[in-house]
Design a protein around this nucleic acid. Structure first.
Lengths: 166, 166
DNA sequence: CTTGGAATGTCAACAAGACTGACATAATAT
DNA sequence: ATATTATGTCAGTCTTGTTGACATTCCAAG
């Protein structure tokens, strides 16, 4: 019951409930570490995680539309709008009216926005780099494989579209 | 600058900024998948992620104290108390006064609590199991290695203390 | 050209879940 | 006796999510 990993005779020990539980807990604790460094920086400047996410994905896809960002972040436009408004007001993001379709707003980071993005992602990458180094290349490959397999198909699509990689 | 992964001649390609960014994004999207299934169940019964976390760790360490739970979850007692109160009121958690130190409350899941925990963790494990199976045992080992390396030392300690594993 | 619908923005109200600060109670430790 | 610890509780705040309603702008189809 509830298991489904009955060790069919082979080495399926990695699929035991106990292993899965530990994986779940590892995911939980690791995610807290993952967000800890940027959170500290954001707190100082009265921003939150939502601002980080917006800045991150605008940096990754300059000129992206609000709608596209909504699809990636999976929040309501009202929620995103509040965040974007403060970012525009504070001069971190520029929303340019589309030339082809003038209803659309194309989002770009300003110099100031790029600076914050770098500050945040430097902190996050630092931890990531240490973890990667410590675990080694093969572990990193496994890490990525499992993470991708955990994503919802829609999210995986967004993930894959983000950047051509080696 | 901001890099630090300058390919010292060897195969340190897995430490490039681009690889690290993709890792960060993978972590973000995967975590959303990770929480999606329990979230759906919780929503139906007017509970949130905070309730899930409490129920999970009480199940893992029956008889744990409020203080210990606070340390693991890293929230304020007021925040945890609100969640625990509803869980006790709804008959999912029992808070027993300590025998040695009567200030402490030892927390246990009731039958009803165990049932919810199973429902939630079954859903979460199901996704985990699929991902693990898809990625394979070696990938899972790498996954776990990287996650552990990402944790804050305090959290890693809590993680290790949770259960002896093979 | 008019109208319908899509993309966006905005206002208002609300909820979960985090926070702080202050205070109460009970019990252990000094 | 007093200080400290463990817990609970009240009140207020913040972030980030939610709905619902409505305005604006503009493309596209009739």
């Amino acid at each position: 019951m509830a298991d489904g990993a009955k060790q069919t005779g082979e080495s399926l020990l990695f699929l035991t409930d106990e292993q899965l539980r530990k994986g779940i807990e590892a995911m939980y604790f690791a995610y807290r570490g993952f967000t800890a460094d940027p959170d500290r920086i954001l707190e100082e400047m009265e921003y939150g995680r939502a601002h980080h996410r917006a800045v991150h994905f605008i940096n990754r896809s300059p000129g992206t539309t609000v709608n596209n960002l909504l699809a990636i972040l999976g929040v309501t436009k009202q929620s995103l709008n509040r965040v974007l408004r403060t970012l525009v007001e504070d001069g971190l993001v520029e929303a340019k009216v589309g030339t082809r379709d003038r209803r659309e707003r194309h989002l770009f980071l300003t110099e100031k926005g790029v600076l914050l993005e770098q500050q945040l992602s430097d902190a996050q990458r630092r931890r990531m780099r240490v973890a990667y180094k410590q675990a080694g290349p093969e572990a990193v490959q496994g890490f990525r494989l499992v993470l991708e397999a955990m994503m919802d198909p829609d999210m995986k699509r967004h993930f894959s579209e983000l950047k051509e990689e080696g």
